[in-house]
């Protein structure tokens, strides 16, 4: 499947899940800030990606979980620690951690959830 094919299907997935217009879904668009996704939409997106690409997405594989929980040790003073960043690079390689690392506030992690990130994830998943 070409990157264009993956993008087209991811776009259709988001149009269905979020009720957005297809021209709003660009690679750079952020799921929450630009496309209006809310927490429950992430589960919907996971279900639709699984169906549209015939893949299984285990919990926490697409969207990182528990990053901010106190006992994980990945966050200090509201910033993701070096250890946390290293974990992100390993566990969620589809996320643009380098950009995030420039200003690693916990709340900024959501800006890394972009259409491009979904495309990266699907590409890795299909190649696996």
């Amino acid at each position: 499947m070409t990157p264009e094919d993956i993008f087209t299907k991811v776009r259709d997935t988001l149009v269905d899940a979020l009720g957005v217009d297809d021209d709003e879904v660009t690679l750079e668009a952020r799921l929450e800030a630009d496309l209006g996704a809310e927490s429950i939409d992430f589960l919907d997106i996971v279900f639709r990606l699984e169906k549209n690409f015939s893949i299984k997405i285990p919990r926490g594989e697409l969207f990182p979980e528990d990053l901010a929980s106190a006992d994980a040790g990945f966050v200090k003073d509201g910033l993701v620690t070096a250890e946390g960043l290293a974990t992100l690079r390993t566990k969620v390689p589809h996320i643009d951690v380098d950009t995030f690392a420039k200003n690693p506030k916990v709340e900024n992690i959501k800006d890394m959830f972009t259409v491009q990130m979904l495309c990266n994830f699907v590409k890795n998943k299909l190649a696996a």
Binding site: L43, D44, V46, F47, E50, K51, R59
Partner: peptide
């Protein structure tokens, strides 16, 4: 039941 995982289902 269409989908089901530890977080929920559809």
């Amino acid at each position: 039941l269409i989908n089901e995982n530890p977080e929920g289902g559809s």
